[in-house]
C-alpha cells in the first residue's frame, strides 16, 4: 500500500525529470523528417504520415487488439520463465554441484539465437499461440535463471553468521535476509527479460502467426505500405517505453531505494 502511494506520488516529479529525454526525442524526429525529405516518402515516410497511420490504427481499435494479443503471448512466456527460471535458479544456487553443472548449459542457452528456437518452435507448435509463447519463454529463461543463481550464490556468509548470532528464526531469514538479497538480483533480470519477451514475441508472430502485432507488420510489409509498417514499429516501441518508464523504472527505484547512490 505504501509502495503504491509512493509510486503514484512520485510520478509528477519523475515526469518532470523526463524533459531531457523529450528534447532528445524531438531531435530524433527532426532528423527523421530531414532524411525522409531527402530520400523520398517511398523509402522513408515522414513522421507526419507515420503518426497519421498510427493514429488511425489506434482510433480504429486495431492497434489495441493486436497489441493486447501480442502482449498476452509475451507475458505468458515471460511468466512461465519467471516462475520456472527463478525457482530452478534458486534450487541450483543452493547446491555447489548443481550450480557448476548449470553454468555451461546456461551459456549454451544464452548463446543460442532466438531465431533458432523459433524455427524449432514452428516445427513443434505450428502456427498457433504456442510458437511465440515458447520462443519468448526460452529467450527469457536463461537470463532469469542466471539472476536467481547469482542471487543465491553471492550471499555473504558474514551476514549468515550475523543472523545466527541474533537468533533470527527461519521465516525472518527468508523475509529479511535471503529474500531481499536474492530479489536484488532477480528484479533486474525480470526487467531485462520483459524487454526480451516483447521483442521476441513480435518476431515470432512475424514469421509464424496469423494475428498479433508481428503478423500485422508482416501484412503491411507485403503490401509495401511503409507508413503502416513504421506505425506498427512505433506502436511496439512506444508500448515498451511506456511500460518501462511509467511502471518499471519507478518500481525499481522504490524496491532498490536502499541501493540508491547519492548523486
Amino acid at each position: 500500500m505504501v509502495l503504491l502511494w509512493r509510486w503514484v506520488s512520485g510520478i509528477p516529479a519523475y515526469l518532470w525529470s523526463g524533459w531531457g529525454a523529450v528534447a532528445s526525442l524531438c531531435l530524433l524526429l527532426a532528423v527523421w523528417e530531414a532524411v525522409s525529405i531527402t530520400l523520398g516518402p517511398l523509402i522513408l515516410p515522414d513522421p507526419g504520415a507515420t503518426f497519421g497511420a498510427l493514429w488511425q490504427l489506434l482510433a480504429g481499435g486495431v492497434a489495441a487488439r493486436e497489441l493486447l494479443l501480442t502482449g498476452q503471448r509475451a507475458m505468458t512466456g515471460l511468466l512461465l520463465a519467471m516462475v520456472l527460471g527463478s525457482s530452478a535458479g534458486l534450487l541450483a544456487g543452493l547446491s555447489m554441484t548443481a550450480a557448476m553443472m548449470a553454468r555451461p548449459l546456461v551459456t549454451v542457452l544464452l548463446g543460442t539465437p532466438p531465431i533458432a528456437w523459433l524455427v524449432l518452435a514452428m516445427l513443434w507448435f505450428g502456427a498457433n499461440d504456442g510458437t511465440p509463447v515458447f520462443t519468448a519463454f526460452i529467450a527469457c529463461f536463461p537470463v532469469i535463471f542466471v539472476g536467481a543463481l547469482q542471487g543465491t550464490r553471492t550471499l555473504d556468509h558474514h551476514l549468515k553468521d550475523m543472523a545466527a548470532m541474533f537468533r533470527l528464526p527461519w521465516h525472518m531469514r527468508l523475509t529479511d535476509l535471503y529474500g531481499p538479497h536474492v530479489l536484488s538480483y532477480l528484479f533486474p533480470a525480470w526487467i531485462n527479460a520483459l524487454g526480451t519477451a516483447w521483442k521476441v514475441a513480435v518476431m515470432a508472430e512475424l514469421l509464424a502467426s496469423a494475428d498479433g502485432v508481428g503478423a500485422a507488420l508482416a501484412i503491411a510489409r507485403s503490401q509495401l505500405d511503409m507508413p503502416v509498417t513504421l506505425a506498427w514499429v512505433g506502436a511496439v516501441v512506444l508500448t515498451l517505453l511506456l511500460v518501462e518508464y511509467l511502471l518499471l523504472e519507478p518500481l525499481k527505484r522504490e524496491v532498490e531505494r536502499w541501493r540508491e547512490v547519492q548523486a
Binding site: 558474514h158 551476514l159 553468521d161 550475523m162 541474533f166 537468533r167 533470527l168 528464526p169 525472518m172 529479511d176 535476509l177 531481499p180 538479497h181 536484488s184 536502499w258 541501493r259
Partner: peptide, 19 residues
C-alpha cells in the same frame, strides 16, 4: 555487518524482531 536493505533503525531492532 548491517543489512543494506534496512534502515539503521530497523537494523538496530533486528534482534528484537527475532524475539
Amino acid at each position: 555487518r548491517l543489512l543494506p536493505w534496512k534502515t539503521a533503525g530497523e537494523n538496530i531492532a533486528l534482534g528484537l524482531k527475532a524475539m
